[in-house]
Computed example of a mutant assay.
Amino acid sequence: MRREEARRAVFFDVDDTLYDHLIPFRKAVEQAAGGQRALGDFPFAAAYLRLRYHSDMLSLELGGAGAMEAGAATDYMRMRRFQLTLAEFGIPLTDAQAEAMQAAYIGCQYDIAMFDGARELLEELARAGWVVGLITNGAPRHQRSKIEAMRLDELIPRERQLISGSLGWDKPDARVFRHANELTGTLPENSVYVGDSWRNDVVGALEAGWRVVWFNHRRAERESAHEPTFEASSYAELRELLMR
């Protein structure tokens, strides 16, 4: 496709960027622990960030998202991430307990509500002439189920819904972002990525030459000297940045 310098692209991460990924995590932990009262003042937000970290690291050990669709190794990784995460907060889990937590997590992961203003912003960006797309890490069927739960096919053509497990590259690999540019005929300097993960989204997109809006709604700490182009904590702030 011919590249057009004036053509603007904006791609979004999915998990914890378009919808609140903490909700299914919290439900799973509470369900497996016997309810919220049993956990007291457990720091769900901090634990969720550690679960994301362990998921990324274990996935890399197994060969990335392209190897993460199914199988014994994947089942072990998904169970083990809960053990590693909860252990950091003083809650050791047996294999059976971690498997029950993972089963509860999967059971509610597709009960998804987008962040307030997210759908409206995607629609407004498309009307304004932006090339709108998704770039998400994960196994194809798993991520596709989330995309369908949010009815994103109504807003974004499937060819612009890029899932790492189908591509063979995981964020932060710059090839993911270069592929998005080649696919849409856009240039890195005219492309914006919106995502919550410092390592995968901020670092990955910046090193591919894109501008980045760090969707830091969890007030996470920066992990390197990289400098996101903008930072936002809500879709109201995102709209002000992208539609001005």
Rank of each mutant, 00 (worst) to 15 (best):
R2M: 11
E5W: 05
R8C: 03
A9P: 10
V10Q: 04
V10N: 04
F11K: 05
D16C: 12
D16V: 09
L18G: 07
D20A: 07
H21S: 14
I23R: 12
I23T: 05
I23G: 03
P24R: 09
P24F: 10
F25G: 08
R26F: 11
A28Q: 05
A33G: 03
G35C: 00
G35N: 03
G35W: 01
Q36E: 15
Q36F: 06
L39I: 05
G40P: 12
D41P: 01
P43F: 12
A46F: 02
Y48L: 02
Y48S: 03
L49M: 12
R50P: 00
R50L: 15
H54T: 00
M57I: 12
L58Q: 03
L58I: 00
L60S: 09
A65H: 05
G66C: 07
G66M: 09
G71D: 10
A73Q: 08
Y76L: 15
R81C: 01
L84M: 12
L86K: 09
L86S: 07
E88V: 00
F89D: 02
P92S: 12
D95E: 13
A96Q: 10
M101L: 13
Q102N: 15
I106H: 15
I106S: 14
C108W: 04
C108K: 00
Y110S: 08
D111W: 12
D111P: 10
A118S: 03
L121E: 01
E123C: 04
E123Q: 03
E124H: 01
A126M: 00
W130S: 01
G133R: 09
L134F: 02
T136S: 15
A139C: 00
R144Y: 05
S145L: 14
S145D: 10
S145C: 01
K146F: 01
R151V: 02
E154F: 06
P157F: 05
E159A: 05
L162F: 09
I163G: 12
S164G: 06
S166H: 10
L167N: 00
G168C: 01
D170G: 10
D170T: 11
D170Y: 13
P172I: 07
F177N: 06
H179M: 10
L183G: 06
L183I: 06
L183W: 13
T184A: 07
P188I: 04
P188E: 08
P188D: 07
V192M: 14
V192L: 11
Y193G: 04
G195H: 11
R199E: 13
R199M: 09
N200E: 14
D201F: 06
V202I: 06
A205W: 08
L206Y: 00
A208K: 13
R218K: 11
R219Q: 12
E223R: 15
A225Q: 06
E227P: 00
E231T: 13
E231V: 13
E237N: 03
E237M: 00
L238E: 10
L238K: 09
L241K: 06
L242S: 10
